[in-house]
Design a binder for these strands. Sequence first.
DNA 1: GTAGGCTGGGAAAGCGGTTTCCACCTAGTA
DNA 2: TACTAGGTGGAAACCGCTTTCCCAGCCTAC
Lengths: 335, 335
Amino acid sequence: MGSQVTLAQVAERAGVSLATASRVVNGSERVVGARFRERVLAAAEELGYTANTFAQAVARGRSDVVGLVVPDIQDPYFSVIAAAAMAVVEPSGEMMLGTTLRRQEQELRYVSTMRARQARAVIMVGSRTTDNTHTRQLAEAIAEFVAGGGRAVVIGQDKLGADTVLPLNRAGAKDLALALVDQGHRSFGILAGPSTLLTAKDRVDGFIDGLARRGRRPSVILHSDFTRDGGYQAMSQLLDRRTTPGCVFAVNDVMAIGAMAAVRERGVKIAVAGFDDIPTLRDVAPSLTTVRLPLEDMGRMAASMAMDEPGERRRVIRVKGEVILRDSTTLVRNA
Amino acid sequence: MGSQVTLAQVAERAGVSLATASRVVNGSERVVGARFRERVLAAAEELGYTANTFAQAVARGRSDVVGLVVPDIQDPYFSVIAAAAMAVVEPSGEMMLGTTLRRQEQELRYVSTMRARQARAVIMVGSRTTDNTHTRQLAEAIAEFVAGGGRAVVIGQDKLGADTVLPLNRAGAKDLALALVDQGHRSFGILAGPSTLLTAKDRVDGFIDGLARRGRRPSVILHSDFTRDGGYQAMSQLLDRRTTPGCVFAVNDVMAIGAMAAVRERGVKIAVAGFDDIPTLRDVAPSLTTVRLPLEDMGRMAASMAMDEPGERRRVIRVKGEVILRDSTTLVRNA
DNA sequence: GTAGGCTGGGAAAGCGGTTTCCACCTAGTA
DNA sequence: TACTAGGTGGAAACCGCTTTCCCAGCCTAC
């Protein structure tokens, strides 16, 4: 029926002032006497009162909204992180979701939206690019957001001056390369993702570095989108070449999955490795060799930092990846 | 820097009243003279003004927040719908995400949260259960939400009195059964999901109905969670039995994927079919027979209804599923 | 020439809360 | 007993913005 029950109605019904009602219903420093407290609670209960969080946000000058900005909620990498972050935020806050569809300028837009909302925090899961102008603008926007009393946490970018959860992409990719060579692989290709994406670049560099330690180098490096379809296309392109490497590293799992689809389609035999260890991998066959990142932990950590009181100095949590060798790179003993 | 620029500051700088400034920065009925308009816009620009959406929501008595409530954002079924809905909402609204972790009472909580927020709309993606008490409570909460001026759209439940996008589960499953029998399958098992979930039940019933039309019936029906792991467990259990059917219908794709994992693990040969046609299926091998639901369309339609002006009468959009036969149920010519 | 209608600006009253004061009452202390 | 301190309730200011009035000036019409 009617519209929203207001605090004023509760106060009236309980026969107390607005101030008292407010103190009871949404706890404050001030203690309210038991008699009054009960009356207010009863009234609130009877009327089915729920606080208007907007009004609270305006009055308090802050809100409990946490903005989560991801490139694509359908990508398992991001949805795992989102789900984990959600679990942390949910008990005491609310989550506003923004997806950039992998367009950088959207990141900027969301940060200012969040500032306008006086969001308590914003968590950005993104990837640093070679576009320094954008990085600088984003860093500025984040600085403003923080100056305005918000908390900013970034996953995967390290140049934004915010609290950060940073996967050690380079080291992980290097370890992977070492492991693959030690497994007996001899020729390598890299599906390198977008050339503008530094996350991808770090992984490529790390991989090349690892190969170099064993006196090898990739015979081919192809760029494409950072998505399943990007992996598929790049691998198809690679398979069109005269000679193909025996082992291909795709810089993330979704690309690797796309690459495997291309491989399967052509009925060729080629080893594929990915990066991230998204849960989806449990069900791809052959099982995919990858570098495991603790995605859930990353989401949780980011959200925890976001919910913390701001004020302390910048924190950077580095998470390292663990090489997981599986069937997709198992070398058949022959030839 | 410092904190937020307020409209009052803009007005002062432009040398106009608050009212005029307000009218300029977010267009109202009232026209503002060109001279003043320019001055205000310039001032807003210089100061980097962004409207405080909370304050706007309080003043206007409504907001542009659309709440999206899903059981699990990691499940591809929901993330596809979420992404599609997001694309529709994003240009003119903001999306608040709620995940229930498949716990019903959470649905209720979110609906009232959204009411408190005076959200413009709430989109619930859920599934009707046998818990009539809950269904009734939810319907009441939704009715209140709507009475308060909000718009409610539900995907997959038909008893809530809200605008609805309703997959024809029963018909789809029936068609699937017919197709499978016609393909030559003779003995069937069903991984039926939770017995309390009516979506699952509808699919089971439809499938049984289809079989019946061909004079057959399932030899075994097992219940489990509606998740990948649920499918895995149920299939494992099924495979432990003395005799196993030649073809198993899992009531959704993620369960089917889990089931296939179990099948693969044991190295047995058994046909598996799912329901939904989530995008993930592109990369499972063997490719999975399923009933395709236009998930993106469903998300878009729901979001469109949510963004519409409320007021017209209840709309129910039924979407039907299309049987897609793939390798997982291809019968090898032998025996 | 003047009444009546537009136009467009500003003052101020909300919107639903929170929070700062201030007042009052009851103890506690010397 | 007088005075102070602490605890607790209420009035009112305030958060940032929208919107209703009110009013001044100007144009048109008779």
